[in-house]
């Protein structure tokens, strides 16, 4: 008993109190910024080097739904037009808002409908489905429940059964072998229900957009409520996105 108390004292106060203004290491690659500079003549190095076709030029645009946040484009750009900042607030409720252009300083989340907020604003239970996720996103989702991020304090929790859930959280590009299970799981969630996509693979297929083993029909047939980009997304990106969407302090 004494030893358990000692362990508790050793824990100290590891929780991140202010999740809205936490600071991440300066090397962390979050929101990319596109400088107001013109590109060198006919330069398309960023487009060629990007492993997931996330970049288009004239003008330069980066789709965070496709971006795997590797530093290749930043390295390749001769005019230093693209650089990553450590801004982690990059979640959005619309796919279009994930496209970063010159002048994009923030990515924001529109409030959910009043019905959703009144149903889920104080308690949101989610069922996670790993549909080809490499376990990177899964580790970060698990980290949400640890003593640092403690998502339980906002009434958000991951549950075991889809019957107990208010929505599903999908990680991974949805493999053919998981396509049916994903549908069955979603069907088992009672209405009203939401879908959240976690990570680049779920949002666009990411690096697996070239794979022949994926089956993404489910995502075309259903409305997606929230997109959390990243490879994998930082836990704070998830928390921030959900709190904004549910309009909590």
């Amino acid at each position: 008993m004494i030893d358990a108390i000692k362990l508790r004292i050793l824990q100290g106060d590891p929780i991140i109190h202010d999740v809205r203004n936490a600071s991440l290491p300066k090397l962390f690659r979050g929101l990319p910024v596109i400088e107001n500079k013109s590109c060198a003549n006919e330069c398309s190095r960023c487009v060629e080097i990007c492993p997931t076709n996330a970049i288009s030029i004239n003008p330069v645009k980066i789709d965070l739904g496709l971006c795997v946040f590797c530093p290749l484009c930043e390295e390749a750009c001769p005019g230093k037009v693209i650089h990553f900042t450590n801004e982690y607030k990059i979640a959005s409720d619309s796919r279009e808002s994930l496209i970063v252009t010159n002048g994009t300083n923030t990515i924001s989340v529109e409030k959910a409908s009043e019905k959703i907020r009144s149903y889920f604003g104080r308690s949101l239970k989610l069922r996670q489905i790993s549909a080809g996720g490499c376990n990177g996103c899964e580790l970060e989702l698990n980290a949400l429940s640890n003593v640092n991020f403690d998502i339980g304090r906002y009434g958000i929790e991951f549950v075991a059964s889809p019957r107990h859930a208010d929505g599903i959280v999908i990680t991974g590009p949805i493999t053919q072998n998981m396509a049916k299970a994903t549908e069955i799981c979603y069907d088992a969630v009672p209405y009203p229900k939401i879908i959240i996509l976690i990570g680049t693979c779920a949002i666009s297929g990411g690096i697996f957009q070239y794979s022949e083993e994926t089956q993404r029909k489910f995502l075309e047939e259903n409305k997606i409520d929230l997109f959390i980009p990243g490879c994998p997304p930082h836990p704070l990106t998830f928390i921030h996105g959900l709190l904004d969407w549910l309009d909590k302090k």
Partner: peptide
């Protein structure tokens, strides 16, 4: 087999700059 994404096949078809990202995943 539920997580099968075809990584080995993709290693043959993808470009150098994609392979490191693929092996990270």
């Amino acid at each position: 087999g539920y997580q099968h994404r075809g990584v080995e096949a993709m290693m043959l078809d993808t470009k150098n700059n994609q392979r490191v990202v693929l092996s990270e995943s």
